[in-house]
Write a protein that binds this DNA or RNA. Sequence first.
DNA 1: GGGGGTTCGTCATACGTATTACTTCCCGTC
DNA 2: GACGGGAAGTAATACGTATGACGAACCCCC
Lengths: 334, 334
Amino acid sequence: MTRRPTSRDVAQAAGVSQSTVSLVLGGKWHGRVSPATARTVRRAAERLGYRPNLAARNLRLGTTRTVLLVVPTPSSTFFGAVYTGAAEVAARHGFGVVVYPWPDDTGSGDASAQGGPFASPREAIDGVLASSLAVEVLKEFSHTPAVMLDNDPAGATPTVAFAVADGMRALAAHLGALGHRRFGHVAAAADQWTFHERGGALAAAVAALPGGELVRATSVIDVGAAKEAAGRLLDRPDRPTVLVCDDDLMAAGAYKAARARGLDIPRDLSVTGFDDDVLATALEPELTTVRLPARRLGAEGMTALLQLLDGRSPEPRSLPAELVVRASTASPRH
Amino acid sequence: MTRRPTSRDVAQAAGVSQSTVSLVLGGKWHGRVSPATARTVRRAAERLGYRPNLAARNLRLGTTRTVLLVVPTPSSTFFGAVYTGAAEVAARHGFGVVVYPWPDDTGSGDASAQGGPFASPREAIDGVLASSLAVEVLKEFSHTPAVMLDNDPAGATPTVAFAVADGMRALAAHLGALGHRRFGHVAAAADQWTFHERGGALAAAVAALPGGELVRATSVIDVGAAKEAAGRLLDRPDRPTVLVCDDDLMAAGAYKAARARGLDIPRDLSVTGFDDDVLATALEPELTTVRLPARRLGAEGMTALLQLLDGRSPEPRSLPAELVVRASTASPRH
DNA sequence: GGGGGTTCGTCATACGTATTACTTCCCGTC
DNA sequence: GACGGGAAGTAATACGTATGACGAACCCCC
């Protein structure tokens, strides 16, 4: 016999019935199977290297113990961290995590191109953990329990979000205390809650500052594009004394724009980022930014989702967005 | 009826038997079902929103159409790209991809802690795509078709690897042509084929250079640690004129070590990386490095694995590692 | 008009598991 | 010695699909 051993093989080897094997290995044998036979069964399973067939189990139980993590761009350190946190919590509860890269070419287009109702692994799922893409995701997985990540907590679906407004306020306060008044905002051109939130908080904070002014340029999240956008702000006659960027990657672009114009950071210009990516400490000078604990986002999101799957309704949780002051911010020159 | 519709429901709605539904939707009905009934069935399936139950299908077919991607650290842009390439090819063949973060806390420790033979989704798998961790991975998935990524092509399992030696040679030639003779190697302290390969190629190339000298410092792949290692090389009396780093991230550390000592890049010191991460263009000056097409690695690896699953034996493929010259290298001052 | 082929379907079954209902055995008690 | 009852284990079944073995029409042609 070269095929994978089944519970029936174990039963035969142990001299019992298949049901007994299932009971013992399932852990629900107390008072139904004698400790002695239980041991025999476990020993036989061990010896044969038995591993339960997942497909059969799933079919029988009607559950997969798998959740889908929907991410816009898997090749980012941020979502790598989210994944890690989520997978950690999931594993602790016997759940697995499957990644679904949302808008990339791997998307649903290919799947339906298979002809007929084609089921990809992403359909064998108990729940969905989705980041920042509310509308579309909910459309495709409408009848599946879902938790949103870093989305509007006021929405219909349970959400775990960063307190990005807090973070932005803390950042603005730090800059205000340094003496900055003319702010430039290098904003992400993405229609997502978190960016609207950041923009709103910054605008409010600057408006509350005596003599505060705010100019804005938008770009996609990319070094080159951000450099260009930052350049537009720096070329204004009333050049800002600080560039607040929506992302660390964009801050790297701002660095380049500044240096191309002979501006020293932080002496001539302060720059800030958002996320606290590896990049933040790789840049020179090291970047003042707002730390978003991505791994924790994944972990808390998964916790909430598991609660949801368990029938309990998870309380909405908010994660801190903490200011990290490094070397890219200083008082403006007079 | 509120539950998920089954093929039997579709059959009833279309006024045919379950087998007919299965035949039609499976696409194997030519000569067995009339085009008219086929249309009826498809229409009914559409109307009910029928999606096949994956667990049942897997059980019946004894296959999961899923492959496992084993990665050491999912929170890196490199493996994100590998994943994307792999998932793309997989989807085109109706396969899904599940990620298994290898040595992290999510590992097998937790799984066995569940008590009894606990099956995680990572076991319902047709094949394994594993990167750089040969020995251990093969231990756990010994009876599963596997393809290695970026590992020794001479090994027993089929492999798709970068021609890192070529890349390193091209890099050394570039530096030699600029006039460099005293090389510093900031090497990754990881016991992986790719790093041995890089080190060997560099040593050979430098040795072949008239008057070539090579000093080496190792560190883990991390900005801070690399900065420290690079510093050790820069503090030598016979300071190297160029630091060749095993990774872009380590090059960032080298930048910091150089700047801490008042050395200008590339005037006083040339620095090179490896990988061509986003980081490479985010740094200033932009980093001369060797590009490893990570996405292609995933794609080719998946292609090979699918061939393997198909019974064919894949020819070992090697991917180019191409030199990318940017602004961090120049001729040494005399 | 009956044999043989083609077309269109259906019946029955198996995949491997978890669980409910049931049988068997044995012991203590009146 | 009959009987209640717990302990230990088993038989049977269902989950939803894919497919090989069977039928039942229908047509063609000798």
